[in-house]
């Protein structure tokens, strides 16, 4: 139990946790406004990674309709990331228009949105596979220039290391959190969003066009999802059309742990679960997958509104 080990585990936890946090931000945003879990978020996240790949690298593999196709123009990484994120934002809007708005208008059981968003996820994931196959795509290693692969330093004669990409992910999650916080707290659009979240009927009486703001929420959620998808794709490779969907379930644990609908809670929840996994004794690695859900179950029993959740109300 030496200090170097503690520090290394702390860094590991933050590193894993920031992956979860980055994923969960866009996920929790929709919940905070609509009180609905958007199962298509994982698919939009995946789409973001593929879109950025198409824009930045533009060469496809040997499977799918686009086999052997090379895009006529490619962008440098950062513009590609931004364009890819905006396109994912548009995809998020399409999800709202296809899967959520029609249900609201018809007064359907709110639970049905779980199913319809799952349907959209099925479409997106299989469309990606239809077009570019299930193979693994990756971004060039030098995408961030010539940064070293990892930062390694000595504590008491023992090495402690953290991968550069993890520092970037951690930073990105904080920047995204800060940006979102600024937008919601300080801008007029953000205030209208909060009003919509508080009470949609009152908001519409106040002259806020609720549907437009919901659409805006989905755009931002998709945008964040696209950014996150690309960053995680850079870190771990774009491992097939299902790679984002597999974060969905743990992402659910993350946003509930932090407090459903709480935006800083999503980051906190991610970090807590990451730390929980990192501090699990190494001879218990086979139980790592259960950590998030044991924490989730425990917090629900003790404090159902989550770590940072304020009000507890009946939404689905």
């Amino acid at each position: 139990m030496d200090f170097a080990w503690l520090l290394q585990s702390l860094l590991n936890g933050l590193s894993i946790g920031s992956v979860y946090a980055v994923f969960a931000l866009g996920y929790t945003l929709v919940f905070s406004i609509l009180g609905i879990i958007n199962f298509a978020h994982g698919a939009v996240f995946t789409l973001g990674a593929y879109l950025t790949y198409a824009l930045a690298v533009g060469r496809f593999g040997i499977n799918g309709l686009l086999a052997d196709v090379t895009m006529p123009v490619t962008l440098p990484f950062v513009p590609a990331l931004l364009v890819g994120a905006v396109l994912s934002g548009l995809a998020g809007m399409a999800v709202e228009r296809l899967a959520f708005k029609p249900l609201r208008q018809r007064g359907a059981d709110p639970l049905l949105a779980l199913v319809s968003s799952l349907g959209v996820a099925l479409i997106v994931v299989n469309l990606i596979q239809y077009l570019v196959g299930a193979e693994i795509y990756s971004f060039p290693a030098d995408i961030f220039g010539d940064l070293p692969m990892a930062v390694i330093f000595q504590i008491g004669g023992k090495p402690v290391a953290v991968r550069t990409i993890q520092i970037i992910l951690f930073g990105a999650s904080l920047v995204m959190l800060a940006g979102l916080g600024w937008f919601i707290g300080r801008t007029r659009g953000g205030k209208a969003l909060r009003a919509t979240a508080e009470n949609a009927d009152t908001a519409s009486l106040l002259g806020i066009s609720v549907n437009r703001f919901i659409l805006g929420t989905f755009f931002i959620s998709g945008l964040l999802g696209g950014l996150a998808g690309t960053l995680i794709g850079v870190s771990f490779g774009v491992a097939g059309p299902y790679f984002g969907v597999s974060y969905g379930l743990k992402g659910l644990a993350v946003i509930v742990l932090g407090g459903l609908g709480s935006i800083p809670g999503a980051v906190l929840g991610g970090l807590v679960i990451g730390l929980g996994e990192a501090f699990l004794p190494s001879d218990m690695s086979s139980y790592k997958e259960a950590v998030a859900f044991v924490l989730l179950f425990a917090i629900l029993l003790v404090r159902p509104q989550g770590l940072l959740g304020g009000r507890l109300e009946q939404k689905v």
């Binding site: 899967a99 359907a108 949105a113 199913v115 319809s116 349907g119 959209v120 099925l122 479409i123």
Partner: peptide, 9 residues
Amino acid sequence: GIVLVAACV
């Protein structure tokens, strides 16, 4: 997926 969404809507 399309049928699933259409059924919901």
